[in-house]
């Protein structure tokens, strides 16, 4: 992200800082991998539709190929005793690093709720913890939890904005 920003805004001046920030904000709200969406927007800005396609292939093709090669290589050596030992250490490492990712994913929406006041923060925390517990209990499928959480939050946000718009002005700076 930082590298893309530097070359798009500073080195080549393809877009202004503000334009870039607006694109990034938009990408964070689109489904799928944000970085891909950002690349498409920058590419499109530079050279239209063709630019978007070239940027996308440039970002993804080499890395996807390397990903496949690593996976194929791993399949060849998977049954070696040393590799099996290594996997026993790699599993907890992946879990630990994944927990960091989970915290990073939660950070942005929680901060956004925080800016809207204490009640919203509590509500956000409720959704975060609630969905985790619901999945852990095995009583609901991921897709259902996602859709329900989205729908509840949409309703809540809309109601709060409509009936208590003053909450917006209570932004803690």
């Amino acid at each position: 992200m930082t590298l893309i920003r530097r070359s798009a805004v500073q080195t080549h001046a393809w877009m202004s800082e503000e334009e870039f920030n607006r694109s990034w904000a938009l990408c964070q709200m689109t489904p799928g991998i944000n970085l891909i969406a950002l690349t498409i927007l920058v590419g499109k800005k530079v050279a239209g539709f063709r630019g978007a396609v070239i940027c996308l292939l440039g970002l993804l093709f080499p890395s996807a190929l390397i990903t496949i090669l690593i996976t194929a290589g791993f399949l060849l050596i998977r049954d070696l005793p040393t590799v099996k030992g290594a996997l026993k250490g790699i599993l907890p490492a992946t879990v630990g690093l994944g927990l960091v990712t989970a915290c990073q994913m939660a950070q942005q929406p929680i901060l956004a709720s925080w800016k809207r006041g204490a009640w919203q923060t509590l509500f956000g925390a409720f959704l975060l913890v609630g969905s985790a517990l619901l999945l852990w209990s095995g009583k609901a499928s991921v897709i259902v939890v996602l859709l329900v959480a989205g729908a509840i939050a949409a309703l809540e946000n809309w109601v709060v904005d409509r009936f208590w718009p003053s909450q917006e002005s209570e932004v803690p700076q």
Binding site: M105, L127, A149, A151, A153, N157
Partner: peptide, 14 residues
């Protein structure tokens, strides 16, 4: 709100 709720659930369920 929908996107925030979705993102919170995604993070929580990870």
């Amino acid at each position: 709100g929908f996107i925030r709720g979705l993102n919170l659930a995604v993070a929580g369920m990870f």
